[in-house]
Design a binder for these strands. Structure first.
Lengths: 338, 338
DNA sequence: TTTTGCATATTGAATACATAAAATGCAATA
DNA sequence: TATTGCATTTTATGTATTCAATATGCAAAA
């Protein structure tokens, strides 16, 4: 193999690594998502600074996004007065959303998930070099670094002292998902008992509305991704109300990894209705500041999921036992191979 | 201000950012630390591959380190047979250790700590640009990036969607340390109750030896850093035995931030003796696989520290109240400043 | 058979420059 | 007086190249 490698757009790249990853999602996409999830009415005035503050960027990318959305007919511009919402939530064409999501960042996310998937399936060695990833997934140096930074942040691989990287055991064992739930079982009820716990009324209302949406048919109509996100959002909102940055950080981290694991677990929608009612009950208890009872309810809520996972895990292992011998790719020895 | 800035070695730098941070500590330092902490006897054969595996690098840096140590007289070389330990642990001159620690990496660590300290003292704004840090601390692009990567990994600052960074609340509030303990209180007892918990006999023995060393005078003679590290090591060892990567990751992360906070808290050595006995009791319980009792003991152990912290916190706040008006730097408004 | 010693191959960081993207100041306008 | 619209400034990434640090293959020695 030569030193010089041709990367996926045909440029020749030699090395050189950059931090990368400005934002996970492009501004237009985020803007549409915001309008969508908060169901803004037609005619709403869209102030640049307000939106910019909301998305944590400056007015420039917001204005560019608005300009784009005007071309697509989602917003209307009045010269020297600004932009106004021209379409109701539901009327935004799905094709447009899809179009907006095809940005470079989403490419990076896609490759990121592919790497996680490959790792879960045992297709990647325990240690690897950056060059290995670059060639295997046809990455530019920038993409490579965006991905590695993200993986390091999520904690499922880490830089070795010398050259190279090694995976942590987060994604290796078949019961990783179960283990992530056990961490949540330790953390989330405790978060509800933090001194100074305070669930903002607005946050509470939004959470309640989301659960109601699910019960009103959302369970069937939402995509698997949306269902997952809503679940994560609910639990993170509750932990955020603890006001303890360490709890929040730990929960966010485990949830980001959990996203990778959830895709592999059986995700039937049967239990979601039950979950909704448990969530609503939790909100009710927290509203009344019955945090002790809420913590117990949370323990039971997570506990029931764990029980379910354990049953699934047993089933899986029984299934694997019959196919393991042939299906599993051979583990390669680290040293001394011809 | 001109576009071009002169960095601290006099080179002109324009931007360009690199991931950086190969290893936290240089190989010679690590090697000496290893020999020191495990108290290897004189004459011990130092096999390159064994050491390399231990330090997670290849034989090359190990061999270079050994060569360096031979020049310093710590190890002895026999041609075609390898290296052997020439000096007993205690006989390694302190000056040599200091010499080895003056590597570039330690510079980065020093600046990293300075930034954390400045942040804790409220000298840094909630959001900042990379250029701001680069000029304020006279950093080369490489150093800048090593530091930012580390900070992002530790979780006390994060990249904003656009340009710029913002600090999380981990280091801002005066009771951050207390909050970190509350997370540990939720995590560590739970870790001891994980199914499949298994504390390796060798690890147990090493922990016990370390506590014994402290009781045998180590509390007085060890440096504050060493005391801190030993405490962290004890608790992380116990959590690692849970076999749950999520618990381990969460505890490691909180401890890395805690290192920054501990420097600011009063650290008298009075309570260390008490801690040692609690630690030994924990080890005894875990050895007998009385994990339920161990979890309770852990809860009490951490709980007593929290009580102590709360008392200190009250004292501090009382003190601050009298000096706050003048001592606190004025919070600057984000926008619209001349 | 294992380990050393050394030459060679590979890795990824440092540097410099060019450029796209985002932040910001301010006059014009509602 | 707040907001828009736009020009300008600032920020940080992309690309190409060089080079020091690290990894590794293999003959020689124990």
């Amino acid at each position: 193999m030569s030193y010089v490698e041709v990367s996926y757009l045909g440029q020749v790249s030699h090395g050189g690594t950059i931090l990368g990853m400005k934002s996970a999602v492009s501004t237009p996409t985020q803007l549409v998502t915001l309008i969508e999830t908060e169901a803004w009415p037609i005619g709403t005035r869209l102030r640049a600074q307000t939106l910019a503050d909301r998305l944590r960027v400056s007015r420039t990318p917001v204005n560019e996004a608005l300009q784009l959305l005007e071309e697509k007919g989602v917003v209307r511009r009045e010269r020297n007065r600004g932009y106004f919402l021209a379409k109701a939530t539901a009327d935004i064409p799905v094709a447009l959303l899809g179009e907006l999501r095809q940005s470079e960042d989403d490419t990076i996310a896609a490759i990121y998930f592919r790497i996680a998937e490959d790792r879960l399936q045992g297709l990647l060695p325990d240690t690897f070099s950056e060059a290995f990833l670059r060639t295997r997934y046809r990455l530019t140096p920038g993409q490579l670094n965006a991905i590695l930074s993200r993986i390091a942040l999520e904690g499922w691989a880490e830089r070795k002292p010398g050259y190279g990287w090694s995976f942590s055991s987060m994604l290796t064992t078949p019961d990783s998902l179960l283990k992530s739930y056990r961490l949540r079982l330790a953390l989330e009820p405790a978060a509800l008992l933090e001194p100074g716990y305070r669930l903002d009324r607005q946050v509470l209302a939004r959470c309640r509305a989301a659960e109601q949406h699910l019960l009103d048919g959302g369970i069937e109509t939402d995509s698997a991704d949306q269902l997952h996100d809503r679940g994560v959002h609910f639990h993170e909102s509750l932990v955020e109300a603890s006001g303890n940055a360490f709890f929040i950080d730990a929960i966010r981290r485990v949830n980001r990894v959990r996203r990778l694991l959830s895709y592999r677990s059986m995700r039937d929608r049967k239990r979601y209705g039950e979950h909704c009612h448990q969530h609503l009950e939790l909100l009710r208890l927290l509203e009344q500041e019955k945090n002790l009872e809420a913590a117990t309810a949370m323990r039971e809520h997570l506990g029931s999921t764990i029980c379910n996972l354990e049953r699934i895990s047993e089933l899986l292992q029984a299934t694997l036992a019959t196919t393991a011998a042939t299906a599993h790719p051979a583990q390669r020895k680290k040293r001394k191979l011809p």
